[in-house]
Amino acid sequence: MHTEPTPADALPVPPALLKAPAPAAEPPPAVIVFGRDERGRPHASRFMGDEAAEAENAARLMGLYLARANTELLRDLAARLPAGRLFPSGRGFVPFVKAELYERLLAATGMPDAPMPTRAASKPADAPPPAGAGSGGKGSPDAPGGAAKAPGDWASIGIGSIVLACQGPMEGWWEAVVTHTRADDRFVLRWRDFPDDGEITRARNDLGLLPPGSREGLG
Rank of each mutant, 00 (worst) to 15 (best):
V97K: 01
P28L: 05
E103M: 12
T181D: 03
I159S: 00
A114E: 08
R41N: 04
V163I: 01
A8Y: 02
A165P: 04
T109V: 10
I157Q: 08
E216M: 07
G219W: 06
V31D: 09
P23I: 09
K19V: 06
G63Q: 12
P112W: 02
P212S: 15
Q167K: 01
D37S: 05
L64V: 12
A99D: 15
P117V: 01
F93P: 01
E175D: 06
A20C: 14
F93I: 01
A83L: 09
W173M: 02
G132W: 02
G132K: 03
V94S: 02
V31H: 13
A155R: 11
A52G: 04
D37F: 03
G40P: 03
P14N: 03
G213M: 03
G134I: 07
F87R: 04
P115F: 09
R204K: 13
M170V: 14
E26T: 10
Y102I: 06
A147N: 12
A143H: 14
P195E: 00
G49P: 04
D113H: 04
L11E: 11
K149W: 04
Y102G: 02
P115V: 07
G92Y: 01
K98F: 14
A44P: 04
V13L: 13
F187E: 00
T118C: 09
F96I: 14
P124S: 08
H180A: 08
E216K: 10
Y102Q: 03
P130G: 04
P129F: 09
R204M: 09
R202F: 01
G168S: 00
P144D: 15
S45A: 10
P195Q: 06
H43W: 02
D206I: 04
A165S: 08
A148W: 09
A150L: 10
F96W: 13
E38G: 09
I162G: 11
P15I: 12
A16S: 06
T179N: 00
A8L: 06
A203F: 03
V163P: 00
P7N: 13
K123E: 14
G136L: 13
D185W: 14
R36P: 04
G160Y: 01
G136D: 14
S161G: 10
T109Y: 08
P21N: 15
A79W: 13
T181Y: 01
F93Y: 09
M62A: 05
G40H: 09
G160V: 02
N57V: 06
T6I: 11
R182I: 05
D76I: 13
G63C: 10
A25E: 07
N70T: 09
A150I: 07
R36Y: 05
A58Q: 07
A127N: 02
A44G: 03
G146W: 13
R68Q: 08
M116E: 08
G92Q: 05
D37E: 07
P130D: 04
D9E: 14
E51R: 10
R80A: 01
A69I: 10
P12S: 06
R202P: 00
D193L: 01
V178R: 00
K98W: 14
H2W: 13
A58L: 09
Y65K: 06
G40S: 06
V163F: 00
S122G: 05
G172I: 00
P15N: 11
N57F: 08
A99M: 15
